[in-house]
């Protein structure tokens, strides 16, 4: 995966430089730049991390410290879709463990893993601020509340269809 990684497209590099220029110091754009790379490639590979570090005038290790710090920055490959099921207290009270077990069975994965067809990665996530509709989850950028097993089955089927 690492060696096959193409360099960042010129447009992405230009966007990163623009983000850096808008900050008082270029490194202020670190998180925004990494999120941009992730939006294009689903995750942040080491060659891409090195490229971003160079554009921001940081060492790769320094930037990797930032990349590995945040929950939403992925330093390992993920599937085409990411399901983030809240594992914090309100969702736990409302039965998220049962939903998680069901997803693991349906997808044939453990939390943190990606399905064999590369379609879906299942990740636990901390409270997503949707506790009035617990249990809640994010599927990519879309919020789902009051989740039950039929909802999960419907969503998983739809995600598997999508490219």
């Amino acid at each position: 995966m690492l060696t096959a990684d193409p360099p960042l497209p010129a447009t992405v590099r230009a966007e990163i430089l623009a983000l850096a220029a808008a900050e008082l110091h270029p490194r202020g754009a670190a998180v925004a730049a990494l999120r941009l790379v992730q939006a294009h490639f689903r995750w942040i590979s080491t060659p891409h991390l090195r490229e971003v570090a160079e554009l921001l005038g940081m060492s790769a290790d320094d930037l990797d410290g930032v990349a590995t710090y945040f929950n939403l920055l992925f330093r390992r490959p993920v599937g085409r879709h990411v399901i983030m099921l809240c594992d914090s207290v309100s969702c736990w009270i409302m039965g998220r463990e049962r939903l998680c077990a069901h997803l693991c069975r349906t997808l044939g994965v453990k939390p943190g893993e990606t399905t064999a067809d590369d379609a879906i990665t299942l990740l636990p996530t901390v409270c997503i601020g949707h506790c009035d509709h617990a249990p809640a989850m994010l599927v990519d950028d879309t919020l789902h509340g009051d989740v039950d097993i039929p909802t999960l089955d419907r969503l998983v089927a739809a995600l598997k269809e999508q490219p």
């Binding site: 914090s88 207290v89 309100s90 901390v126 409270c127 601020g129 949707h130 506790c131 009035d132």
Partner: peptide
């Protein structure tokens, strides 16, 4: 806003 149980903001 990341305090579990909080969604006011």
């Amino acid at each position: 806003e990341m305090e579990p149980g909080t969604f006011k903001d």
